[in-house]
Design a protein around this nucleic acid. Structure first.
Lengths: 181, 181
DNA sequence: ATATGTGAATAGGTTCACAGCC
DNA sequence: GGCTGTGAACCTATTCACATAT
């Protein structure tokens, strides 16, 4: 499957997905395979990244350079998927330099200007819970329309802004529930 | 709602959940409210933590003390939810001490013994992708039945083992897709 | 023969509408 | 009046069964 073709009928075992599921999902966006043969990997891959809007490198900012924020800055798995953390922001600029991270870290005051100038649309929010809503409001005002939120609260945003939550405690609770025997 | 009662009819606006949804969900586990009045917070809270298995502090181990692993070790949000990271494991014990973390960090060799002796059932997996499956096999052999996996691959485990995936790139892609206008 | 594409059937989850209780 | 509890109605997502193309 490295290049050439892949077959929905044979491949899904690896991904634990049923073949019909995969094909049905694809049909919502069009027809991409050839019957009896399979799918052209290159063509399919292109259409998916067009669909996800990751064809060109998307700029993302990170707000809140604490432990988790630093970890995400060091995580080089985003670029591979078409995202680039172009800058990070924090109230405290001291003690953030212990790791050598290529991403510039700015003070919060520079955020609005930066976001507007660069036309950034997405933000990763790794700030302490008590200030998460307040900072979210700022982000929305600057024109951010997608927020990946790590604070364990429900953020309130206008309808045209999308929030995606990552709540690690809930993930563990989930496991805990299903584990019991 | 701090203590006393809460009403499903009034409260959900904050959590962006419909009142019927909340009530329906609760009925799958029994009846906990009183009609016309609401729910007793203490009683409901107790039943939920019983249900989630978080009534007593659950021991969890963390495997892979890289950037993300370190961040999670510093994250004090788990205890609050009934989980305690009792130990961390890594192949490389050097350079892990730059942060002062209360959790002991052991070498991988000590993992099987530790897990068996302490009867740990849950693990947080923050190792590099290429070794994730191999280490998962070890964990399963030691008796771990719940894995919170941060590596971007589908882990293969026996039926009685549950894997919960956290894939940050996918979360961003999700946002990216819904953001486009 | 093999694999895709898709309407029909099924399963799963959410919302409605209202009965029951305070 | 208030709010919970719940069958019925509704909506969404998955699976089946098979027509279609190579």
């Amino acid at each position: 499957m490295a290049s050439g073709r892949f077959r929905a009928k044979l491949w899904p075992a690896r991904a634990r997905v049923k073949s019909t599921q995969l094909r049905k999902d694809l049909t919502y966006f069009g027809q991409f395979g050839t019957r009896g043969l399979g799918y052209d990997v290159e063509q399919l891959s292109k259409m998916i990244s067009d669909l996800l809007g990751t064809t060109s490198l998307q700029p993302v900012i990170l707000v809140g350079v604490g432990n988790l924020g630093l970890a995400l800055l060091s995580y080089r798995g985003f670029e591979q998927e078409g995202f680039e953390i172009v800058a990070a922001f924090d109230i405290n600029l001291e003690r953030k330099r212990n790791k050598d991270i290529p991403t510039p870290i700015h003070s919060m005051e520079r955020l609005p200007e930066f976001v507007r100038e660069r036309g950034v649309k997405m933000a990763i929010l790794t700030v302490p819970t008590p200030v998460a809503q307040e900072i979210t409001n700022t982000l929305v005002d600057c024109g951010i329309t997608g927020i990946l939120n790590f604070a364990p609260i429900v953020l309130h945003v206008p309808e045209d802004v999308m929030v995606n939550n990552v709540n690690l405690a809930i993930e563990l609770e989930n496991l805990s529930y299903f584990i019991q025997q």
